[in-house]
Design a protein around this nucleic acid. Structure first.
Lengths: 181, 181
DNA sequence: GTCTATAGAACGATAGAC
DNA sequence: GTCTATCGTTCTATAGAC
């Protein structure tokens, strides 16, 4: 992305892959720098601590999510926006490196008082905001909250059951709850 | 439970509290034995390793879940069984030590190849089996899979948003998806 | 006596930090 | 690449219950 910081970008990319697939606590610093192909000093030149690398990883994932939301919102009407969103989730769930929602995983691992946890709350707001725009409703409306339930259930279910069909089930629920509202 | 092993029971109880609230990796052995009020040797007399204590904690949680399922299944008809279940979830979500689903949290932390992870799969089967019995359907039916989505979304949403209303939203979804099926 | 408990020191490995 | 802290684990020593 920014050629001015190749080491930093390589570190975030390596961290994103490893933290997401293996978990944050289960991934050591050495493994990250080995995959990034940078020296250990480069890590501490760009980040004050592992926690800040974790935060950078989550902010990067948040940015990807925001782009995904924007693409789905370009669809013309609520049902096609929701379908577009859950179709993309389903496609992601079929990948062999799929490991659920990175924010849900991080939430289970991180101390809520950890500064990186604030990114999780940001994602939560961004997700509710996306659903609200998608169905033209308020971010705190029951319909939006039900859609959030569908999203969470879809990704976690697909993860623990290794079954992408769960995403389709959740999409059915989401479409039904919208048309019902 | 068995008075012949007071130290073991105290260890599991302490581990259940700490592992659930703080996470497994974030909780050290010393903290567990301090809360249990037992010596370190008692831990390794009853468990071969920390991993086995983790497995015991998860099996204990699974037993509690099975009892909860059985109580809900004593209700006379599907809607009241589902209501009973989600009402109990909602009550749990209002507790100040609520931290979501212990199995979902453990799934995010543990290596899938960890022997303790088999308990997570057991819970998954037990949950699907409960919903199947609750609505008189097959454990792998779409309706049951949608109910699992509701359960997962309910607990995770209530956790990250600190908002027990999410459980009520999920209960609405669950009742609706059943009556629709 | 044997089993299980407690208290604490000490070891080896790992992981984060500089 | 080195330093240091921490964590899981093991060992020594001792006391109480059946």
């Amino acid at each position: 992305m920014s050629p001015a910081h190749p080491a930093r970008d390589r570190l975030v990319a390596a961290a994103a892959d490893l933290f997401y697939r293996q978990g944050i606590h289960a991934t050591g610093i050495d493994e990250v720098i080995a995959r990034a192909g940078v020296a250990k000093a480069s890590l501490y030149n760009n980040f004050a601590s592992k926690d800040e690398l974790v935060a950078a990883y989550l902010r990067d994932a948040l940015e990807r999510s925001r782009r995904l939301f924007a693409e789905c919102l370009s669809e013309p009407d609520p049902p096609s926006r929701l379908r577009s969103f859950f179709d993309r989730l389903a496609a992601g769930a079929t990948r062999d490196d799929f490991a659920g929602c990175p924010f849900a995983n991080a939430a289970a691992e991180l101390d809520p008082r950890d500064p990186a946890s604030s990114v999780l709350a940001e994602f939560d707001r961004a997700l509710a905001d996306f659903f609200a725009r998608a169905i033209d409703d308020a971010p705190d409306s029951p319909a939006v909250r039900r859609l959030v339930v569908c999203y969470v259930g879809a990704l976690h279910g697909a993860k623990v059951r290794h079954d992408p069909r769960v995403v389709a089930d959740a999409a059915d629920l989401a479409l039904a709850t919208w048309s019902r509202a």
